[in-house]
Design a protein around this nucleic acid. Sequence first.
DNA 1: ATCAAGTATCTTGACATCGAGATATATGTG
DNA 2: CACATATATCTCGATGTCAAGATACTTGAT
Lengths: 165, 165
Amino acid sequence: MEDEVDRLVAAWRRERPDLDVEPLEVLSRVSRLARHLDRARRLAFAEHHLEPWEFDVLTALRRAGTPYQLSPGQLLTQTLVTSGTMTNRIDRLAKKGLVERLPDPSDRRGVLVRLTDTGRDRADQSLAGLLAQERAILGELSRAQRAELAGLLRQLTAPFDNIPG
Amino acid sequence: MEDEVDRLVAAWRRERPDLDVEPLEVLSRVSRLARHLDRARRLAFAEHHLEPWEFDVLTALRRAGTPYQLSPGQLLTQTLVTSGTMTNRIDRLAKKGLVERLPDPSDRRGVLVRLTDTGRDRADQSLAGLLAQERAILGELSRAQRAELAGLLRQLTAPFDNIPG
DNA sequence: ATCAAGTATCTTGACATCGAGATATATGTG
DNA sequence: CACATATATCTCGATGTCAAGATACTTGAT
């Protein structure tokens, strides 16, 4: 089955036969698929009255395990947003009663963000919904293909995640 | 080499051993890699004084071939943004002299967006830069692996691109 | 002890995006 | 031909994000 990137690549080969556009076969698909996933996630979370950005922060805290707290800085590396954005997100989640800010006892510059009980419940509920949706999207692929795909993607993400970039 | 998603998945398995989080191995990597790519693209285009969104619109027109014009609607499906966003993008590109709006002769509701000569040059220059960067990112992978990856990703994108979703 | 450099978080202003609705035109049915 | 419905684009208000800089504290070297 053809996709939009096949059309895009064919168009470039016609218009710019002098260039090797093969990298687009992989990376344009990654970018476009991510945008489709964003939209799908927005719909899936709407049932739980959660925005994708709220999910990202709440689940990062949920994954940390008891007592469900992380510094803003740790949340940055997990969510790939800037510090200004994270300050704003924490403000809004705190106003909704889903997280609370605590002073970091070991560093007076620092802050710890802790999930409230309500926040924890919302995280748990919405995660199940997301996984169901993702399973449907991956339905096309066999288990072996998913493992293959995950492995190849890891090779691309690892440099970004490990070298501070 | 481990990446952030390996850590994320391990954390879920510890915290929610009742759930099967295997879908995240693929789809969280796609989302995170797309964010890394966005940042990298922003840097790469900075040399050409172009924003990623400008690149997306200009190259869609460039790919169309002479006379380098498409309707706003066609640009929507290629760039995956809403109509309000596209109106705004065209306004700003027109103000910078990179595109111009023409009435569609065959449909008086419609408009055609045409690349100016300057716009065409900017598109061509920045494409070469992007490809160089993407080749570096894909450097980890053999040619066969890239083909494998592209094929697996196509299976995921095709439903989104073909069923109007 | 002091001070420079580093780190953690927050503040601010500019800007791009979205969703919903408005407007104008096109198309199909009877 | 009239009308209901569909389509193409634009308008507008709300919101989330970013980059750059400010502030407060910590760390390491002397």
